[in-house]
């Protein structure tokens, strides 16, 4: 027999095999998920969940698809959190500190409690990336926040009402578009194609009998 553990889904007790994730344990218990389940693999942030182990004071946050059940787990899913996303025009946005001040002024109300960092399901230093955003250091904010899945747990714990994932999203787009070095070989190639530099080559390939293409494929040189 498989070993089982007792878990509490929204306070109600279920006995489930111990090797399940919180997500599969919910399904095992009879839930047909619609909310709170997206990629099932730790990339989309749909399955934010908070739990507490019986007898323990600490509140934990996790991704339900990435976390094994434990005995005495009290589980509540957080399938939606009202993050605030400000809209802006990426083509016209000024690349300076003021932009954070205008769009997300609440980040300057951060009290430094670190609850966001403690709650992050990805183990990111959330408070630090907010500090970078305050300073207008978009590159550092982008790097520090890169692995964010935007599950929103950080924001659910924030006394200042910051929407951390959205702040980071803005920083990453500014960094990607304006601060990261421009790519010359890419620009060149786009222009070459526009100018028709490869048109004849491609037209030739389109016409070739399959056998000739097979020959080309089987004999192609592979870059080391």
């Amino acid at each position: 027999m498989e070993k089982t553990v007792n878990i509490f889904l929204f306070g109600k007790k279920y006995e489930v095999p111990e090797n399940l994730t919180i997500m599969t344990a919910m399904e095992y218990s009879g839930y047909q998920l619609v909310r709170g389940c997206g990629c099932r693999n730790g990339f989309c942030g749909a399955c934010a969940t908070i739990y507490r182990i019986k007898g323990d004071r600490e509140l934990h946050a996790c991704l339900a698809c990435q976390t094994k059940v434990e005995d005495g787990m009290y589980i509540a899913t957080l399938p939606f959190f009202p993050l605030v996303k400000q809209v802006y025009d990426i083509e016209k946005i000024p690349v300076n500190e003021q932009v954070m001040m205008q769009l997300y002024p609440e980040i300057y109300a951060c009290v430094g409690c670190s609850a966001c960092t403690k709650a992050c399901t990805q183990g990111l230093n959330v408070m630090q990336y907010i500090a970078y955003a305050q300073r207008g250091d978009f590159e550092a904010c982008a790097n520090e926040s890169f692995d964010c899945v935007m599950c929103g747990v950080c924001s659910s714990r924030c006394p200042a009402g910051i929407s951390h994932p959205q702040v980071a999203m803005l920083a990453r787009r500014i960094n990607g578009k304006y601060i990261a070095p421009d790519c010359e070989h890419l620009n060149d190639r786009v222009k070459e194609i526009k100018d028709g530099a490869f048109a004849d080559l491609l037209a030739d390939l389109m016409r070739k009998p399959v056998d000739e293409l097979k020959e080309l494929y089987n004999k192609r040189e592979i870059e080391k």
């Binding site: 990426i90 787009r173 500014i174 990607g176 010359e184 390939l205």
Partner: peptide
């Protein structure tokens, strides 16, 4: 043919929207 010919422009489009591709310091992908 369309896929391969429009590929560089697709990457540029994404990059211009702010997608952070891995790059060397001189901008080389």
């Amino acid at each position: 043919s369309k896929l391969v010919c429009d590929a560089p422009d697709a990457v540029k489009w994404l990059s211009d929207l702010g997608v952070e591709f891995d790059k060397a310091p001189d901008g080389t992908m």
